[in-house]
């Protein structure tokens, strides 16, 4: 880049030997934070690989669904946590992804794994196109516009002229895939590993993205859009593309969800799903990528736990759980971890 030599010329330095300090590392128990993070990731990977061999099929199925939710929440987080745009309409992108996959499998016998990239691209385009008019809306007004999307989606899916494709109120039944190559895995185990692999790739991409030049532009817009523009960031382009990429993540999650659940139906994709994703986002930690994993687990298991406590008052119990969680972790699971780490690091010093 031409800028670098000019900078060196201007300061009169012969070589670009500028000191670069690495970030200060907190040390806990004689181990640096970066090392702790590595250990945590390795531990998670081991648990994730072993768990489907020690639990029942139904629990594997639930875990897979939690992973799917986590991925959908990750999409929402890219939009809200890293770009500062709100959406209560992500259930619609989830639905578009799910129906794209289901229609491809049902009508054209396309293999389930090919449906994911297609669902992703369809949602990328839908998200981008929705993001364009949404550029004019800020904060709560954007939330309202996306809310409309969430309300519209299930009705459009039931709309009778589209019934040939969508299956109307009944939805579409999808055949669950079995493990390929004669692998000794049950269908649930196989779908779990397949989802895990897809999620792993998409999480790595998300981490790369938010730490890149593009990610910095996204965050700059979140923090101060006018200043971002003055620093050369094409604000409207980045905002609408972020909308598209966010929808892509949630759409791929939707396609996976269709494969995992074995069917799609309009009433699985109501506004409630948007709220579930939003709750998962907040509980996991807005702007935290690992937090979305917790968010996914919460989105799936919290309602189940509430139901097991009291069938009749499940909603109320869920509400209490939610209030407790927000009270204990006002900035989500990620915030709580950060707090504990900084406390430990301070006491260790």
């Amino acid at each position: 880049m031409e800028a670098t030599p000019a900078a060196i010329e201007a300061t009169g330095a012969a070589t670009p030997s500028v000191v670069r300090l690495p970030p200060a590392q907190a040390v806990i128990g004689g181990i640096t934070l970066a090392r702790w993070r590595q250990l945590a990731i390795i531990a998670c990977v081991i648990v994730a690989l072993v768990i489907p061999f020690v639990v029942k099929n139904f629990f594997i199925f639930q875990l897979t669904l939690a992973l799917v939710y986590a991925l959908a929440i990750l999409g929402l987080n890219l939009l809200t946590g890293f770009n500062g745009q709100f959406s209560l309409g992500h259930s619609a992108f989830y639905a578009i992804g799910a129906y794209t996959a289901a229609i491809m499998m049902d009508h054209w016998d396309v293999a389930y794994y090919w449906t994911l990239p297609v669902a992703g691209v369809v949602c990328l385009i839908s998200g981008f196109l929705f993001g364009l008019p949404a550029l004019r809306l800020e904060g709560i007004y954007l939330a309202l516009a996306t809310f409309a999307l969430a309300i519209a989606a299930p009705q459009i899916l039931k709309f009778s002229p589209l019934e040939h494709w969508t299956g109307g109120v009944q939805g579409i039944v999808v055949i669950k895939p079995d493990a390929p190559f004669g692998l000794p895995l049950s269908s649930d185990q196989w779908i779990y590993f397949f989802t895990l692999a897809v999620a792993a790739v998409l999480y790595v991409c998300a981490v790369n993205l938010v730490n890149s030049r593009t990610g910095r532009a996204m965050k700059a817009i979140r923090d101060n859009a006018i200043a971002a523009g003055a620093m050369g960031v094409n604000v409207s382009l980045y905002k609408s593309l972020t909308f598209g990429v966010s929808a892509l993540y949630t759409g791929i999650a939707g396609a996976l969800g269709a494969v995992v659940a074995g069917f799609v139906a309009p009433d699985s994709f109501t506004f409630t799903l948007s709220i579930q994703l939003f709750v998962g986002l907040v509980v996991g930690g807005v702007g935290s990528i690992p937090g979305t994993l917790f968010g996914g687990l919460f989105a799936l298991f919290a309602p189940n736990v509430a139901e097991s406590v009291s069938k009749g008052l499940a909603g109320a119990v869920y509400g209490v759980i939610l209030i407790l969680v927000i009270y204990v972790m006002p900035s989500g699971a990620a915030g709580l971890v950060r707090l504990i780490v900084s406390k430990l690091a301070r006491s260790a010093r």
Binding site: M1, E2, A3, C205, A206, N208, L209, S212, R213, T214, G215, R216, A217, K219, A220, R222, D223, N224, I226, A227, A228, A230, M231, G232, V233, L241, V245, G287
Partner: peptide
């Protein structure tokens, strides 16, 4: 008009945004 939740280093890097070219795809990969 700083990017309050970003680091000092990242704020300065955003200033250099226009000297580089990259997109969502190449950055994600």
């Amino acid at each position: 008009a700083l990017f309050a939740r970003m680091s000092v280093l990242d704020n300065v890097r955003v200033g250099g945004h226009h000297v580089a070219r990259s997109d969502f795809f190449s950055d994600a990969l």
